[in-house]
Design a protein around this nucleic acid. Structure first.
Lengths: 152, 152
DNA sequence: CTGATTGCAAAAGATTTGCAACTAT
DNA sequence: ATAGTTGCAAATCTTTTGCAATCAG
């Protein structure tokens, strides 16, 4: 599975895509951001730190290629921009607290029992990773209504 | 619970909001659309059929008032516009087939077991109704890749 | 009368697209 | 050489906002 910058680059080349500086930079950022929730524009920001300019449209086009190859996925945490994950790091669901904005990653099997029921009852196989589940911490750390990261 | 045009109008008035023609028309459309998935612009369309013009911004502002009053909710089925439901008609989750675009309504308790686990394990209470769960029909009716209602 | 509400136009934010210039192969 | 890529600017789409005109109470 593609995890390092080089592996990601190789995956592109093997699929017949050209390896450009921009794509290499995007691979580097994704490989260096284990477990993070990066939007397309976050990626531009991080590449900017490390190198010259990179256009947002190029990032979207490249991420789209990676999604076609199954190497990464995007997820929506709320009303904000989509966030991107390498595939092997997105084998989890996202819970987002509507009060404080924190995102919790939970293992796929946390919902497996219900998903199995849904498949049996409704003939529907959830992928379950594309949208976050919104809710609230039972005991939300942000008891003070200070900086509610309003993503929804 | 507010279900009819008149009940919706009354709820507005009781909460101190003024009852305008536009709001009455929106109430009418919502009351007449049991179980449907209506976007703000669908509402404009339906009102248009029955009366004069109605601005989209007015619809958004009115729907916002109704959400504050807890009378209706909006849900996201995919990348498209949000859809609106009267509250008593949204006590269910939405499953959307990524191939054919059909939306299935499933009872809240279809996910209750898992949600209870999540609360116990992660101290997080899902609301679970704000985003659809994407997936696929086991035996998708749209075997022909004809009109995949591409909402995602 | 007076403040709430409307329509219109413009803004905002995320994502997509057309196209000429550029570059990996 | 040539087809794939890029950057830029403009377009799209949904939702929000400013503001003067209008209307409900």
């Amino acid at each position: 599975m593609a995890e390092t910058e080089q592996e990601l680059v190789d995956a592109l080349r093997e699929a017949g895509y050209r390896v450009t500086l921009q794509r290499r930079l995007i691979c580097r950022v994704m490989a260096k951001a284990p477990g993070e929730h990066l939007s397309a524009s976050d990626i531009v920001g991080r590449v900017g730190e490390a190198a010259g300019a990179l256009d947002l449209s190029t990032v979207y086009r490249t991420l789209e290629v990676f999604e076609e190859l199954g190497i990464l996925h995007h997820v929506h945490l709320g009303h904000g921009p989509g966030i991107y994950h390498l595939s092997e790091r997105s084998d989890h669901h996202h819970l987002m607290c509507e009060r404080c904005g924190e995102v919790l990653d939970v293992p796929l099997d946390a919902l497996e029992a219900s998903f199995t029921d849904i498949t049996r009852t409704f003939g529907f196989v959830p992928d379950g990773i594309h949208f976050a589940i919104l809710g609230r911490h039972v005991d939300c750390p942000s008891s003070d209504p200070g900086a509610p990261t309003d993503r929804e």
